[in-house]
């Protein structure tokens, strides 16, 4: 059984749970064929593995297609407002260390309107698991380009092609001092669950980017990473401690100039992936490997997983220390203060 140190303050379940325990009676209202279904099924069947009480699990979301997610998880949940889920979840996680708090968000929710909250949650390292469903399009508002859409994308709001340079969510996360950064794909349940497992084990904020297909407005965006004929060449599967290989005959090396690049296996020695490296340099370089438009050489797996003090733990520690130093607060003493005078009849 996997150990989840990040959940040590969360009460354990009385007995084994099943996928059924995490399903609600609500009709799932995503478009038929949406990648969200696969992610939901993967998460529902993963949750029993945590071995914690279902009632101590909370899903918080913002606004967008993916943000309907909490309605379908039989845990506590809040479907909040656009972009603000990381802030709301921060307040919840910081005040309740006995909860496992998950944020479900999309590329518009997390990176556009909620960009500020995302980066600050990451730098604080609150004990939150953020699942960022990236489909590179706005779905719920019916097909405008998103902050991860490729330059030149033709959409309803960009009939002549979008002008905005996109965010690379994982580069952004590492730049924001994230302690855990990973990427996975909606249709690869096994890989998705392995990343969820690593995120759940991580103490602090985990950002998991999930490439998710919007079959209505951006169908096939990640097809090159999914098709049996192309995926092996397109994907770089990262595993800690293993050499980083790219396709059948290439690998990732660090050149004399310090740059990370992909070369034939006959050249140089493959870089060994160290997800726990304290320096973010190599992880950042990996986030830059993929071709932004064609997605060739897309690393998936855990890019970075390092330990740093966790915000909510430190906050609780400060409270405990204050009580230790000053004693439990006593209201009458506080109200009276140190400078009073008395009036008698």
């Amino acid at each position: 059984m996997t150990d989840f140190p990040a959940l040590r303050l969360v009460p354990k379940a009385d007995g084994p749970q099943s996928v059924k325990d995490f399903k609600t009676d609500q009709e799932v209202r995503w478009c038929p064929g949406c990648g969200d279904y696969a992610i939901l099924a993967a998460v529902q069947s993963f949750m029993p593995e945590l071995g914690i009480r279902r009632e101590n699990t909370v899903f918080v979301s913002g606004i967008g297609c993916s943000s309907r997610f909490p309605y379908y998880m039989n845990t506590y949940g809040m479907h909040s407002i656009h972009g603000r889920a990381p802030a709301i979840a921060t307040g919840l996680a910081a005040s309740r260390p006995d909860l496992s708090v998950w944020v479900v968000t999309g590329d518009g929710d997390a990176l556009s309107i909620g960009g500020n909250h995302l980066i600050h949650a990451l730098r604080r390292n609150v004990n939150l698991k953020i699942l960022l469903f990236n489909n590179r399009i706005y779905g719920l508002t019916k097909g405008q380009y998103s902050p991860t859409s490729e330059v030149g994308k033709i959409t309803k709001s960009t009939p002549m092609g979008s002008l905005d340079a996109p965010f690379n969510p994982l580069s952004l996360a590492i730049g924001a001092e994230a302690t855990f950064v990973a990427r996975t794909i909606d249709s690869d349940r096994q890989h998705l669950q392995s990343v969820l497992r690593a995120a759940a084990q991580h103490e602090g904020t985990a950002l998991v980017e999930i490439y998710q297909n919007c079959n209505i407005f951006n169908d096939g965006a990640f097809e090159v990473l999914k098709e049996p004929g192309t995926r092996d060449e397109a994907l770089i599967r990262l595993e800690h401690g293993q050499p980083i290989l790219a396709g059948a005959d290439r690998h990732v090396v660090r050149g004399a100039d310090g740059e990370v690049r992909i070369v034939p296996r006959s050249e140089g020695t493959a870089l060994v992936h160290d997800a726990h490296a304290s320096s973010p340099t190599a992880a950042f370089a990996l986030t830059r490997l993929a071709d932004a438009d064609l997605l060739h050489h897309t690393p998936i797996g855990v890019l970075r997983d390092v330990r740093r003090e966790v915000y909510d733990v430190q906050m609780a520690d400060q409270l405990a220390l204050a009580e230790e130093q000053k004693g439990r607060g006593e209201l009458a003493g506080l109200l009276a203060g140190s400078s009073t005078w008395t009036v008698t009849d």
Binding site: I88, G91, R96, N116, H117, H120, L319
Partner: peptide, 26 residues
């Protein structure tokens, strides 16, 4: 803090109330 009061200086006004509301949910 010895009264169990948690204070959170947020990144903006929106996050300030968002965190307070999240805590209220809890």
């Amino acid at each position: 803090k010895n009264f169990g009061v948690r204070t959170f200086q947020a990144e903006d006004e929106i996050a300030g109330i968002g965190a307070a509301l999240g805590a209220a949910f809890g």
